[in-house]
Structures are given as C-alpha cells and as structure tokens.
Nucleic acid binder design. Structure first.
Lengths: 133, 133
DNA sequence: TGCTTCGTACGATACCCATCGTAGTAAGCC
DNA sequence: GGCTTACTACGATGGGTATCGTACGAAGCA
C-alpha cells in the first residue's frame, strides 16, 4: 500500500502552534524546511494563482488581496491565497483591515535557485505568445 | 465474449485526430502551440510524475514504461504517462510491444527557456535536502 | 456607538483526479 | 496456433479542490 498522492498541505492544516498568542491575528506559514517542490508547482499550476504571483512579482512590496481584480468570489479568493501561503509561495500578514501578500522570493530562491524566475519568464513568454492580456 | 467488438470503438475514438499516420498505433501529442505552462506545472506537481521526469532526464534516450519501478499498478502508471504526454512534457511511441517515452526537451526549452532545468535542479536539491532516495 | 470595509469560517456542491481491478488489444516468440 | 510480454480502456471509488453564498469577526472611521 502506498500513501495516496502527497498530502497537499504539509501536515499543517489550519491550526498549528500559533494558538498560544491571545487573539493576535497571525497566519501560519511553512518554514523553509517544510516547503515542498511539488506543493509549489501545484500552487503555481492554477491560472488564477499564477496570475496573482505574476502581479506580486512586479510589485515593489506586498499587495492587499483586494488589489487584485479576480473573476471569482471573495471566498474563493481567500482559498487561493491560502493555497499560495501554505505551499510557501507567498507570505501574508495583516495591516489594519487589509491582508498584505508578498512573494517569498528569497526563501524560494535559496531552496530552488532559478525556479521562480524561470516560471515567471515562462508565464510572460506564454502570455506574449497567446493574446497576452 | 470472445468476439466482442472492442477495436471498433477504439478506432472511432482515435481516428478524428487525423495525423497522417503510417501505423494505426499512433499517440496524440499536443503541438508546441498547444502546450500550456499551467498544464506542464500541473503534470510536474505529482511526486510520481516528477520522479519519472527526473529519470527520463538522466537517460540518454527514450525509456520503456516498464523500466520504471513505480509503487503503483500498471493502470495508474498508464494514467501518469498519459498526463505527461498530453501536457507536452514527454513524447511516446510504440516500439514492438514496448512504449518508449522521452522528454520533449527541445520543445520545452524553446517554449519555456530554463524551466525544465530549474525544475530538475530544484528536484535534485530537494532530494538532497531530504533523505534523498 | 454604529457603520463600513475587508477578509474568514462554514457548509454545500460539483468536478477533478489518483488509484484500483478486470478484461481486453497488440506485437513477438515458440 | 497458442503463449508471453507490454500496455490500454473501462468503470468504480474515494479523496482533493474550486466554486459559491451566507453569516460572522476585526479594524478603522464618523
């Protein structure tokens, strides 16, 4: 018998050790050691999530979730950002009522040198090849 | 039950795909224009498929499906190879009773320069970081 | 103290997909 | 012709996941 597939989220569903703090709005992020290539690739394989990552990549600093004009509901948006965060692609924190998201560029570059850049380049190439947008 | 018409349905399923064929046993491959980055990333986001691709990458030429010692059934193996082929990551053709698979390295490099290499490098780095295998 | 903005949790739904076993085709060999 | 090897199609199954609406919470503002 084989473990079915890989467990998408590395064992940390949505209630990790953060519970010690008193109502501090903190979000669980995987440590670098917990980031898995398969999870990163899976996170990037969704068109909407790839689009989010591309926009984050050209931004100077973190962007709020509401910055993105996505053709999906707010709940689904939350879902996609959570997939990106739990796979280790982005980091998020609260600033007032807003939730800011930014690429974990340095972590990813250290773990998987060149990967993020080539994915971003490939996405740009494909966008140019198709009708762009 | 011996004389059940099986190949007729098969032929109908495959024939509309044109492709000036010399043999009836030809496999459908996406053209370069049809290859999508999201599909490639999705294909590579499965641990078993990534493992297949890694082994193909170090092989000199195409390998038969049975070369791989995968911890899954033969039907599931067929499924994974089909995902890889239909996403444009590998090409396959029949040689006798065997089905040979090889990376579409040049196509991928032309479409997405550097992507394949960085994914392979990332996979190797992660394998080294973890217990390897 | 309300009201607004922004995001979350929850439950539901429908589709996707990894897996299997079984039964079948296709080529090669004795 | 039978036997073997290699792979496939089909149908089923169970878990994954993208989507939604609704109700809720937390922060900021009037």
């Amino acid at each position: 018998m084989r473990s079915r597939r890989y467990s998408t989220m590395n064992a940390m569903k949505w209630s990790p050790a953060v519970t010690a703090a008193t109502s501090t709005r903190e979000l669980a992020h995987p440590s670098c050691a917990e980031i898995r290539l398969e999870g990163v690739l899976h996170a990037l394989s969704d068109p909407l999530r790839l689009r989010i990552v591309r926009e984050l990549a050209v931004a100077d600093d973190a962007l709020s979730c509401s910055y993105f004009d996505l053709p999906i509901s707010k709940s689904t948006t939350t879902h996609h950002f959570r997939v990106l965060r739990e796979s280790g692609v982005i980091e998020q924190n609260y600033r007032g009522t807003a939730k800011m998201s930014g690429l974990r560029r340095e972590d990813l570059d250290r773990l998987f040198p060149g990967l993020l850049d080539s994915v971003l380049g490939a996405a740009a190439a494909q966008a140019a090849r198709l009708g762009d947008r």
